[in-house]
Design a protein around this nucleic acid. Structure first.
Lengths: 239, 239
DNA sequence: TGGTTTTAAAGTGTCGACACTTTCATTCAA
DNA sequence: TTGAATGAAAGTGTCGACACTTTAAAACCA
């Protein structure tokens, strides 16, 4: 049976685990699931109408992304981010992105400036903080991708969601306060872009570090500065 | 039944998955499992006398560590590292470790120099390349831990095994050639230590970058420079 | 009533099974 | 003899179940 044109189509295998992952991640970042909330495999499985296996896989991935925390008892909770976590994430970004800036700057092309200028233009027009931060992340991801270093990108992606969680939670406070207007973000990216396109890798790297440090000032959050033991899995596997 | 002293003992839950992980990782790094070798869940499960569930978890973790590769068909193989992979790993290390050096240098204490000097002394006495590289990794991990940044450490650990795979495979070639004697490694670490202890974070960071670049020169490996599509999972989940 | 013990509910780690897909060797046609 | 069709074997993604542990509530005694 010579099927109608099926040369390399590769039947996509079903992947409930991925759907669960995306769904849970979105709920955590949006704040629908709050830090400290319990994530029990059986109840999630029932919610998603699946068995526990895909849920379990999704939870393991979320733990690696830092959005979820395995207790020593084996139970799973939505992670609570403290000020120290915030600092760590900033530092990790500085490490990865300043090297990315150095490498990207060395192979800069006009189209890169064009793309990022367009991104900044959209930032200026953004009407919500959510949209603004989406564009912010896109800007930085673009630089990461420019390096064409898959590992650098993978490492960055593995803290990306924690970063977005920080962004979203501070935004939930600032939405009313409006204490950090678009203008700052926009002009900061404009300066950064200039450095990236300057053809001086050292300068680009340094400006990137400053940009990140400037954009990630800690704002007191609604999350309790609880005394939880801070257990980002440094050892492999649960518990 | 007031059990004899059981205050916070926390019964360790069984964890076959971890044993499988450690075992497979060791086999891959030692070369017992060669790049390209198939890793089928049912056969591994039979080998370990377990079911597929723990094996599956271990494979997912190994994929995140970069030692294993999921094909688009869902099959799993031991990863083949090419020269480009080697370069990427080096660059990722530069990113993470030069920042680590900067931060560690800023909070340097005499005991840190003492510990690392002892490490170097052991390097000088090392009788096998395997032992030498164990000490090498320990040196660098110590600097990472000094930063007290769990995320930086986690990121570093997530490429650590790929790095060790590189080391081991080049060592398997050099064991006979002996083209990179201890002395180079030892003196390189000695200079690095001096920079770390110098109290100048900028210098420490720069020296660390140079040290890593110098220590990771590509040596043509036995692994075919195959035309495999290089798929380090940039998207979440298998396939 | 207050504190301790008992008991049930909830949850994790693992298991074996099923459905479907891919792979590979064999058969068949040209 | 070579190449396409076919069938069985192997493999993945998911499922429901079981044993054991932890958690919470209920029962109990003082």
């Amino acid at each position: 049976m010579p099927d109608s044109a099926k040369p390399l189509a590769l039947n996509p295998r079903r992947n409930i685990a991925r759907e669960v992952l995306l769904s849970l991640r979105a709920e955590i970042i949006s704040g629908q699931l709050q830090p400290g909330d319990a994530l029990a495999e059986p109840v999630l499985a029932k919610q998603f109408g699946s068995s526990r296996a895909p849920v379990r896989e999704a939870l393991i991935e979320l733990e690696r992304e830092g959005l979820v925390q395995f207790e020593l008892t084996g139970r799973t909770k939505v992670r609570t981010l403290t000020e120290q976590d915030f600092d760590e994430i900033r530092d990790a970004r500085v490490a990865l992105e300043s090297l990315a800036a150095r490498r990207a700057s060395a192979k800069w092309a006009p189209k890169d400036s064009a793309y990022l200028e367009q991104n900044i233009a959209q930032q200026a027009k953004a009407s919500t903080l959510a949209e603004l931060s989406r564009l912010d992340v896109e800007f930085h991801e673009y630089v990461l991708r420019l390096t064409a270093n898959k590992r650098l990108l993978t490492l960055w992606q593995s803290i990306r969601w924690q970063f977005e969680m920080c962004l979203a939670s501070t935004h939930r406070l600032q939405e009313t306060l409006a204490c950090k207007p678009h203008q700052i973000t926009v002009s900061s990216h404009r300066h950064l872009l200039a450095a990236l396109a300057s053809g001086k890798p050292e300068v680009a790297a340094q400006k990137m570090a400053l940009h990140i440090e400037g954009s990630m000032e800690w704002t007191p959050s609604e999350t309790s500065t609880a005394d939880h033991p801070h257990g980002l899995a440094t050892e492999t596997f649960r518990r």
